[in-house]
Amino acid sequence: MTLLECKGLTKKYCGYPALSNVDLQIGSGHIIGLLGPNGSGKTTLIKLIAGLLAPTEGTVSVVGCPIGVKSKGMVSYLPDYSYLNGSMKVKDIIRLFEDFYEDFDTARAYDMLAKLDINPGKKLKTFSKGAKEKVQLILVMSRRAKLYVLDEPIAGVDPAARDYILQTILSNYEEDASILISTHLVSDIEKILDEVIFIRNGSILTHASVDGLRQQGGRSIDTIFREVFKC
């Protein structure tokens, strides 16, 4: 089943293209790495999928639905920075997610918070940056969504936290769902990926399976990435 389909997707900022004529299809049950250097268009593509940007040209659909109320109910989005109201308590934010997302699993969220020793009665602004990021990830991964789009989930966190984040991602998504993870920290993430998308200057260079690429070149994805995006 096709979960995500982009056709001729273009996004321009002040006349300059951040994404150019992107055609993309993502099926169910995969973890896909959206890999590219800074400014390559990863965040723009993710925002278009999440419905936070309007395309200049082209279309995006999730399970055949154009971006709108229905698609937002199927996509679980993690931005690359804190987007929650810091003056809210964690338990209030959980209630908000529970109220609006039919697929939100409250028990799973509280279980993950307990494992990390995060007090849900505390306000979000009282937590450290790392703890805030973990709370956001817990909220996003506590949904039983069709498609998870995670924008740089491991950027700016220590190696131990990276392991926790990757473990959380792996152990919490549904089998028929797919995860699109954008990052430029390829070596940390390549072991969990099924497919990779290389993106540069707003265009997709490669969309292939990780095993296929490794067999073809006899090198790791990290090595291939470094060669493709060599400055």
Partner: peptide, 17 residues
Amino acid sequence: RNLYSREGYLMHTLPVT
């Protein structure tokens, strides 16, 4: 702030019109 700054990322990804 709630609709067009950082918090907008949450508000505009809720399944509401």
